[in-house]
Nucleic acid binder design. Structure first.
Lengths: 107, 107
DNA sequence: TTGACATGTGACTGAATAGTCACCTATTCT
DNA sequence: AGAATAGGTGACTATTCAGTCACATGTCAA
């Protein structure tokens, strides 16, 4: 009972990994050390998490000298969306989500 | 290090639960027994999974006599999408995802 | 009301996962 | 060259979670 995008969902299941994606969403091309600075965890923990994200295709990397730059790769996220939201329903669901965003901002 | 939609991501992390969402995406309003028929697992296991999905807001339910009907609730999925795909990038990413869908169909 | 059906609860067990550590390699700067 | 910096590996432990079971409640139909 394992499907193909298991890695993606497992990767997203951890709050630390979601936080890493948030940081990359805000600003792309961060290094391991930059990403680590933010977290109450050893470098090794962060490295492990980044590895999981990379294996899932949620993060792409590029080596530059002794540094490794990390980039958010959003396509797998969109594929999750498309799995349970039909093109037909998309408009309505997006409107509801927008409403929810607005309500949270005013709160 | 726990954020607010932890329940949603944890819920999606399990392949059995994703399969249940797939079934409800295909046809809404199924009962526990109907959902169970499909799975190599006891009724209790399926019930636990449905409970997790319901707590996460991914599945809504309605009692009807002695049956409990289950409905897919797609808004949390859209919120995941919006978290890492900006309105600005959405078009481009959606196009890439569509391309990927087509490639998989021809394969 | 009796029996069958549909769903529900709390406790238990085996497997998977997060985080750490000791130790290692490659690159840059002086 | 030597020291500092950035990243990497494999093994270990504590916690978490999936699945099961004995038992229980509510509903329908004859």
């Amino acid at each position: 009972m394992t499907d193909d995008d298991d890695l993606v969902f497992k990767a997203l299941a951890d709050p630390t990994r979601r936080h890493l994606l948030d940081r990359l969403f805000e600003r792309d091309g961060l290094t391991l050390t930059e990403l680590e600075s933010d977290l109450a965890m050893t470098r090794f923990g962060v490295m492990k998490h980044l590895r999981v994200l990379e294996d899932a295709g949620l993060v792409a990397t590029r080596r530059q000298g002794r540094e490794k730059l990390h980039f958010l790769s959003p396509v797998p996220i969109r594929l999750i969306h498309d799995r349970w939201i039909s093109k037909y329903a998309e408009h309505r669901v997006a409107a509801l989500a927008d409403l929810k965003h607005e309500l949270e901002e005013t709160a």
